[in-house]
Each structure stands twice: as C-alpha cells, then as structure tokens.
Simulated scan of single mutants.
Amino acid sequence: MPIRKLTQGLTFAGALPFYLALLPVLDHDVRLKAFLTYGAIIAAFMAGTLWGLVQQISSDALKQRLLLVSNGVALAIWGSLLIESTGLALALQLLGFLVLLAEERGLARQGSEPQWYWIMRRRITALVSAAYVLAFLFLA
C-alpha cells in the first residue's frame, strides 16, 4: 500500500474514537474521560510530528518557534486533563488542535509539506473540531 494512502487511511480512522466516545452506550463520565484522554493523546502526537519537520527547515527562527509551539501545545493539552471544568478542558484541547493546524498551514505555504498532506490536515481538523462541538453539547 502506498504511504500516502496508508497515511490518509490511518488519519481518518483516527477520528473514529472521538465519535465513538460520544455514543451514549457508556456512562457519561466514562465517555467524557475517553474523549478527553484520546484528544490529549492525539494532540500530543500531532505536536510531536512538528519535531520531525523542524529537522528539514533551514530557518533557525522558524525551528525555534515550532519547537516552542509544539512543547507549549503538548503542555497545555496535558493541563487540560487536570482542569475540573469540562468546558474549559474541551476548549483548551480544541484550541491546541487549531494552533497546530495554523503552524502546519505556515509549513504548507513554505512548501515544507506536500499539498495533499495540507488538504488532509484541514479535513481531519474539521472532523475533529466537529467532534469537539458535539462534545460541548453532549458531554460538557
């Protein structure tokens, strides 16, 4: 299987647990915990992908910004798991995904990522963002 197709398949399959956590088959608190912990894992994973990209960029200023943003997002996402307010935790995680998307946009504009990857990132972030809106409605 070509890497592009595998990447796309795994990426979109990765959105499924967000939506599965919204299904009212389990207790509300279990679903909320599942949603937030999965969101934290995926956001931290996405923040970590910036580290690999940094090695391919020539601008030291951009490298520094990406490293700081990726670490900042990862720490904020971790903090979201410690917050008592469900709405604030969900909002912080959603913001993390959007910040990461903004950084990826800059990389796509510079040609550091293939165009198909940027299109996929926009689409998956839209799907994940929609799941967060639903989580605000049904879990917060």
Rank of each mutant, 00 (worst) to 15 (best):
V128S: 05
S80C: 12
L90E: 02
T125F: 06
E84M: 14
L101H: 04
W78H: 06
R123L: 14
I83W: 11
I119S: 13
F97L: 02
A76D: 07
G72N: 01
G96L: 02
A102H: 14
L95M: 14
V128Q: 05
L101F: 05
W78L: 11
G96E: 02
W116C: 10
V128M: 05
S112Y: 07
L98I: 07
A102S: 12
T125G: 03
R109Y: 03
L90Y: 01
A91I: 02
S70F: 06
S70N: 11
V99E: 12
G87M: 08
W118E: 07
Q93H: 07
E103R: 01
P114W: 11
V73H: 00
L107H: 06
T86N: 09
E84D: 14
V73W: 00
L75G: 00
S80N: 12
A108R: 05
S80E: 14
S80F: 06
L127R: 09
E84W: 12
Q110G: 15
W116L: 05
I83F: 15
L88H: 03
L75P: 00
S129P: 14
V99H: 04
L75Q: 03
T125K: 05
A108H: 05
L95A: 14
L75N: 04
G79S: 05
Q93N: 12
Q93W: 00
Y117Q: 14
L88T: 08
G111P: 13
L75R: 07
S85R: 11
A76E: 10
L95C: 10
T86D: 14
G96Y: 00
A126W: 10
G87F: 13
L94N: 13
S112M: 10
A102R: 10
A130G: 09
V73Y: 01
G106W: 05
Y117P: 12
L92T: 15
R122S: 06
S112F: 09
Q115H: 12
E103Y: 00
F97V: 02
L81A: 03
L107I: 02
L94A: 04
A126I: 15
L81Y: 00
Q115V: 13
Q110S: 09
R105V: 04
E103N: 01
A76C: 14
E103I: 01
P114L: 15
L75F: 12
S129L: 06
L95K: 15
Q115A: 11
L107N: 04
L82W: 05
E84A: 08
E104Y: 13
L101Y: 03
R121I: 04
N71W: 00
R109W: 07
L127C: 12
A76R: 15
Q93T: 01
S112D: 07
M120R: 10
A91G: 04
Q110L: 13
L98N: 15
A130S: 11
E103T: 02
L98S: 15
A102V: 09
I77C: 11
L82R: 14
R122F: 08
G111W: 02
L127K: 07
L127H: 10
A126Y: 13
L82Y: 03
L100E: 11
L101I: 15
A74E: 01
R109H: 06
G79L: 12
W118Y: 07
L107D: 07
A76Q: 10
Q93E: 06
L94W: 08
I77H: 00
A74M: 04
A130I: 09
I119T: 11
W78V: 10
